[in-house]
């Protein structure tokens, strides 16, 4: 029926990786889209080198947004803050590895919006500490 709903996408939707919550995450943020109801809560723990040690997410939404977030949580493990900040929309779509048309781009980019919101809060807190 569709290349978009490939096996790996359906698998990540049915069995999301890194599902749940962390005890005291260093970075935490939500992305939601009231128009379609996609909701993602993303949490990240950093290790002593400032790299992503643990990721967790919970959410509700369409197959594309949930699969994309699940894949995204795998993708960002081990990255530094600078590397997280450098992640582009194209990177997210590459990780998803499915032909997302303009109509579903917003769904696929849900985890990136959550990450960017989390990074903004993280930076504000870091500046506050200075």
């Amino acid at each position: 029926m569709s290349d978009l709903y490939k096996e790996h996408i359906l698998d990540h939707y049915a069995n999301p990786r890194n599902w749940g919550r962390l005890d005291s995450p260093d970075i935490a943020a939500d992305a939601d889209d009231p128009s379609c109801g996609d909701q993602v809560h993303l949490e990240i723990d950093l290790d002593s080198d400032g790299r992503v040690a643990q990721v967790a997410f919970e959410g509700e939404g369409c197959i594309i947004s949930m699969a994309s977030t699940s894949l995204f949580t795998e993708y960002i493990k081990g990255k530094t803050i600078a590397e997280l900040e450098a992640i582009s929309e194209e990177d997210v779509l590459r990780v998803l590895d499915a032909p997302v048309g303009s109509g579903r781009r917003r769904c696929a980019l849900t985890p990136l919006r959550a990450l960017q919101a989390g990074l903004r809060k993280y930076r504000r807190r870091a500046q506050g500490d200075d």
Binding site: S2, L4, Y5, C36, G37, C62, I64, R104
Partner: peptide
């Protein structure tokens, strides 16, 4: 999800 449904029906 309705988005997936509408998308799959479009195909």
């Amino acid at each position: 999800h309705p988005h997936d449904l509408a998308h799959l029906l479009d195909l």
